[in-house]
Simulated assay, not measured.
Amino acid sequence: MTDVLILGGTGWLSGRIARAWVDAGADVTCLARGSRPAPEGATLVVADRDAPDAYAVPAGRHWDEVVDVSSSPAHVAAAVDALGARAAHWTYVSSVSAYARADVEGQDESGELLVPAAAGEESDYGRDKVVAENTVRGSLGARAAIVRPGLIVGPADPTDRFGYWVSRFALAGDGAVLLPETTGARAQVIDVDDVAAFVVRVGADRWSGTANAVGDVHPLADVLGLAREIAGHSGAAVAASDPFLVDHDVAYWAGPRSLPLWLPDDMPGFMTHRSAVFAAAGGTLRPLRETMQRTLADERARGLDRERRAGLARSDELALLAELAAPAASPAAAGPAGPQR
Rank of each mutant, 00 (worst) to 15 (best):
S275I: 05
V4Q: 06
D242T: 13
G84K: 09
V45H: 13
A20Y: 01
F169V: 02
W262F: 08
L296Y: 11
D249P: 00
D103I: 12
L318Q: 15
D305V: 05
A329Q: 09
D191K: 03
A24P: 02
H62D: 13
A328V: 12
V67K: 01
L226R: 11
D191P: 01
A170L: 00
R33A: 04
G9Y: 10
G138N: 09
G34Q: 08
W21I: 08
V76I: 11
A227R: 00
V223M: 06
R314D: 13
R49N: 04
F198P: 13
M292G: 02
R86L: 08
D316C: 05
R289A: 15
P336G: 08
G282A: 06
A333R: 14
V28I: 06
S35G: 14
G282F: 03
A88F: 02
S71Q: 14
V57I: 11
A82K: 01
V177E: 05
S167W: 03
H233C: 10
R206I: 04
A26E: 13
A328C: 10
D124E: 12
S258P: 00
G106M: 07
D305G: 14
L31P: 06
E105L: 11
S275M: 13
D266L: 04
F278C: 03
E299N: 05
R206M: 05
G25L: 10
A47L: 09
S72R: 12
A47N: 11
V93C: 07
A185Q: 15
G283C: 07
P287S: 03
V80M: 09
R341D: 12
A176Y: 04
D266S: 13
V250T: 01
H89E: 07
W12A: 04
A329H: 14
